[in-house]
Design a protein around this nucleic acid. Structure first.
Lengths: 187, 187
DNA sequence: GTCTATAGCGGGATAGAC
DNA sequence: GTCTATCCCGCTATAGAC
């Protein structure tokens, strides 16, 4: 793997573990096994490297989610698959957690990939809910955008509950609770 | 207000705005209008002061939530009141955001107030859901603990969506989505 | 109790050798 | 391209005067 690749991958790991404010160039370099010069040769500085890392993490998360949501099954089953997908709840969401980083929120360039990813995710789920309404799986009165927001929020909030408790249990409970409310009556 | 009070209040504000890692003793002292000596006289250091601040914020949040949840109305109405309560979605949850702070999660003493507050909140809502089941407002098949987890997760995740988008809209959408799913059929 | 002075360490970036 | 040396500044804490 090239030095620049190692820098990006190390940054992704550290951003996930410690966030933007908690991640220092020094820590990145140590993990990547590179010197100062390499980083400032390939990137303009910490924000530039972080942007590359965040973009990649966001793209990866979107691809994973899309694959599950576009899998086989009815709309309800596909949303269930998304919510039940294996997650390391205690690690939190590598994208969502960045929203609690003041320096990320303050920088439009850093926030953009986060915003776009969560937005696309909501829109995609909203469309699946609309499909479900057409097929009679969901009540016609439901608003796809609202249900999608609740689905994504449950996942993001599930991470908060799990990390607070130091146990993934609460994440799973939240998912089960939402799925119980969303379940078609004829099941 | 005493110096020690001003230190705690300044710390609460900064923890909310910038998190634990992003908050320096220097910034606290500047906001409180105090010198180094005052802080190290009243507190052993940053973690000790942060603990006092976190405890107070957690207690306050619990008191506010309890007041709304124990207000008038049916169980569904009380949960609705909790979810619809005025929130500054873009600021995030002063308690929940701490779960994304690596140094808070790594320190059991700092994490404890966060854990206890979210846990108590879930238990209280779970009990309200059970009441709603007894009164026939909620379907008997629902699990109170799971619904409560979904409710709290929706709020916490709503903050994530709002901060990502730079707008409170997504928070409100998630809340409306969950309430639509939770609504008693006979409304 | 509160202040200033000081200290050691690490963050973030630049310079220039190789 | 990558390295080390160096810089300036801010973080966190201690010491000691008042």
């Amino acid at each position: 793997m090239s030095t620049s690749e190692r820098l990006i991958e190390s940054t992704r790991e550290l951003l996930w573990e410690r966030g933007y404010v908690g991640t220092s160039p020094k820590a990145i370099l140590e993990r990547a096994g590179a010197g100062q010069g390499s980083m400032y040769h390939h990137f303009r500085g910490k924000p530039d490297l972080a942007l590359a890392a965040i973009r990649r993490t966001a793209d990866e998360m979107w691809a994973t989610a899309e694959a599950v949501l576009d899998g086989p099954g009815t709309p309800y089953e596909r949303i269930t698959a998304y919510l039940r997908r294996e997650r390391e709840a205690l690690r939190g969401c590598p994208v969502g957690r960045l929203t609690m980083d003041p320096d990320v929120i303050a920088d439009d360039a850093l926030r953009a990939p986060v915003d776009e990813t969560l937005d696309r995710l909501r829109e995609h789920i909203a469309q699946i809910v609309e499909e479900g309404k057409e097929q009679g799986e969901f009540a016609p009165g439901l608003d796809g955008e609202e249900i999608a927001a609740a689905v994504v929020a449950t996942v993001q909030g599930g991470y908060v509950l799990a990390r607070a408790a130091g146990s993934p249990t609460a994440f799973d409970a939240a998912v089960r609770g939402l799925l119980a409310l969303l379940a078609p009556p004829t099941r």
